[in-house]
Nucleic acid binder design. Structure first.
Lengths: 222, 222
DNA sequence: ACGAGGATAATCGTATACGATTTCCGGGAT
DNA sequence: ATCCCGGAAATCGTATACGATTATCCTCGT
């Protein structure tokens, strides 16, 4: 049988809609998500909305308080730092594991993204674009690590960072151009393939940790 | 006002009950979770049960198929390997970060757990007990890493491994005694504190990767 | 005996209804 | 003017109801 439309269930549609709105900032951190209001807005009953929000809760994108309701999570400085530290560990390892597998075309694509990022550094500040390019750069690499669960975890961490809308917008001006240089470095090492795997991992990890250091000025991580 | 009982919501109670049953094996891998049956069993309506299962789905403990229902996830060999690889990366880093923070009492507790594990290795096989002790050993250490999100992620990975009921039961006989020795090694390094942090991390990571190598005999990880 | 087709049962998906809890706001006492 | 209290409005939590989809099994034709 030809599946007629493969209509997603309503709860799935609601889930995707809300999630998208959180990630792109329409529902910013702290926004209250009122079940009945969303249900009216999306023209469904409150039941599938509740299911959608439960899933978002389990992904740490929203917090649901009993008899009070859901709101989009806000990351304080400490939580943000911990999240990026986690990102550094996973991305570093994924980069290491991707090295022997990544095709030349993907490295070229990453180079293209980094070049676009460099042009951003010169031109006027466009945080959303920088965010998009930076995330895309890393994903182009780590997606070639042969571990689905690792890749998925990285995607989720990035989702939370996107939702918090904080990473790039609080970078000191010169952090971006340093980051671009570090990216070039990583690409060079990926291409050459003559570096110790452990050293490549250390290099990628440190690049991510630098994002914390740039903001906090503290050096306790490493 | 004194909160009378702080009764958890039904959906929360259902969530905890199902989760517990999955983790301790009463709902083994592949078990179908029928909404109405669970609702009858726990004496609630199907609505809170659906919410509970959505959360479990988002935690990767169950898979929910449209118009078909939920079943407890089964890990094939590849997924299991990827999960343990992830565990190795996170646990290794968490151990490194715990080293300067962990109190002597916690190290002593971990030693006690490892000694109990050694006694298991001599006596008759009791997989559940070995599993419990092994997980407790690692948690005693990594819980002192100063990164809540990292610790939570490790707990979740262990939950999935517990639910899959596969780690210890398929270890070759002598793997356990090697693991016990490696644990001693980690504790020694934690106490001494004279090892390079990076070296401690490598050591803890390798210990976890050895669990994969022991089962698969392949050496592609490292 | 075996496979195709259809009736029947089991189960899911969502809407609606309503009681329970919390939040908000205004009036009265100090 | 300020604080406390009570009631109304908003919102959540869960039960029930029922149509939609899928699975099961029996019957019939070959």
């Amino acid at each position: 049988m030809q599946r007629p439309q493969e209509a997603p269930s309503k709860h799935e549609a609601v889930y995707r809609t809300i999630r998208e709105r959180i990630l792109d900032g329409r529902y910013g951190p702290g926004t209250r998500l009122v079940l009945s209001a969303i249900a009216r807005d999306l023209e469904v009953s409150p039941v599938p909305v509740r299911e959608a929000i439960r899933r978002l809760e389990a992904e740490n994108l929203v917090t649901f308080e009993r008899n009070v309701g859901a709101r989009v999570n806000t990351l304080d400085d400490e939580a943000w730092e911990q999240l990026v530290e986690m990102l550094a560990v996973l991305d570093g390892y994924a980069t290491r594991r991707a090295q022997p597998l990544i095709p030349a075309a993907a490295i070229a694509e990453a180079q293209r993204l980094n070049d676009a990022l460099r042009r951003c550094a010169d031109g006027p500040a466009d945080h959303d674009e920088v965010m998009r390019l930076h995330r895309a750069f890393h994903r182009t690499i780590y997606s070639h690590a042969d571990n689905e669960y690792l890749v998925e975890s990285l995607d989720r961490v990035w989702d939370r960072i996107d939702a918090s809308r904080v990473l790039v917008s609080s970078w000191p001006a010169r952090r971006l151009s340093s980051a671009v240089d570090e990216h070039d470095d990583i690409l060079r090492n990926l291409r050459a393939g003559d570096l110790e795997p452990a050293e490549l991992e250390r290099c990628a990890r440190q690049h991510n940790l630098n994002a914390i250091i740039a903001i906090q000025g503290r050096g306790r991580l490493g």
